[in-house]
């Protein structure tokens, strides 16, 4: 491991996506460093999810590039890689947490199988080892390991989301993408999940890009924040700085429109 490498993990340069004549996002640039959590906020339709899909190599950008520093220190443009390489990266070094856990899980397969899938995909062939690893991960995301053989269908929404996180983290990724990880959960479950996420990300030194429209989530999880509007970045900086002292009128509006309890 190159623990001392100071170069950014992910470099985004001039990333643009057009859906025909419709703009997805335009000229997005930023760097993401190891262990850093970046929040992307903005209203619906501002290009957050488009950006996330471009970053995670699921959708090809119209122009611009996503450059990733691999474990061996070499630097590669995600869209210049061969497809098997990209898919391998996506299964091992990266994680993707969907808003809807059903998209990120195999609903007909037990929790253990869900967590173990990535391990088997990278060549683990020892049942006991896979199962132990799955158990310890269920433990870490606070799911009772007695439920290892139950399918996610029998899980509550919060448990599904936690299972999805375990499934992604089992290969010790360096970078994880999250699309509204707490969307659709009730507030107490949200708080618990956020707590868990913050701890895991800090413990494992994972870099993360979190898309959210909930500024509280951004505040809790992220070091830096990007505010998007109409497909472009309008403000970026340290999360506390941006949220405490927003300079753009739109960000001011966003911050002031949080409902007080």
């Amino acid at each position: 491991m190159t623990g001392t490498d100071e170069r950014p993990l992910l470099t985004i340069d001039g990333l643009t996506k057009w859906y025909g004549r419709q703009l997805g996002c335009r000229d997005v640039d930023f760097d993401l460093y190891e262990g850093e959590v970046m929040a992307v906020v903005g209203e619906s339709g501002s290009g957050k999810s488009t950006l996330l899909q471009l970053l995670s190599g699921q959708m090809e950008p119209s122009s611009g590039c996503v450059v990733y520093r691999q474990r061996d220190g070499s630097i590669a443009d995600v869209w210049q890689m061969s497809e098997p390489m990209r898919r391998f990266l996506f299964r091992t070094d990266w994680g993707y947490v969907h808003q809807d856990a059903q998209l990120g899980l195999r609903m007909g397969i037990s929790a253990g199988g869900n967590v173990g899938e990535r391990l088997m995909a990278v060549g683990w062939r020892n049942y006991a080892a896979i199962r132990d690893s799955a158990k310890s991960w269920l433990d870490r995301v606070e799911i009772d390991s007695n439920r290892i053989d139950d399918t996610p269908r029998t899980y509550s929404g919060g448990m599904r989301q936690r299972l999805q996180i375990a499934r992604n983290l089992v290969t010790a990724p360096r970078l994880i993408f999250m699309d509204e990880p707490t969307g659709g959960l009730d507030v107490s479950v949200q708080a618990r999940l956020l707590d868990l996420l913050r701890r895991l990300v800090a413990d494992l030194n994972i870099a993360a890009v979190v898309v959210t429209h909930d500024l509280a989530v951004a505040r809790l999880l992220s070091n830096r924040i990007i505010v998007m509007k109409a497909g472009e970045i309008i403000e970026t900086g340290l999360t506390d700085q941006v949220l405490d002292d927003p300079s753009e009128p739109y960000t001011q509006l966003l911050v002031s429109s949080i409902l007080p309890v």
Binding site: R91, R106, G113, G116, M120, R125
Partner: peptide
């Protein structure tokens, strides 16, 4: 095409688990 066969073992895993 890419010989991504991890999923096949998931089926066998499920068998053993069950």
């Amino acid at each position: 095409a890419l010989s991504e066969y991890g999923l096949m073992h998931v089926k066998l895993y499920e068998d053993i688990a069950r």
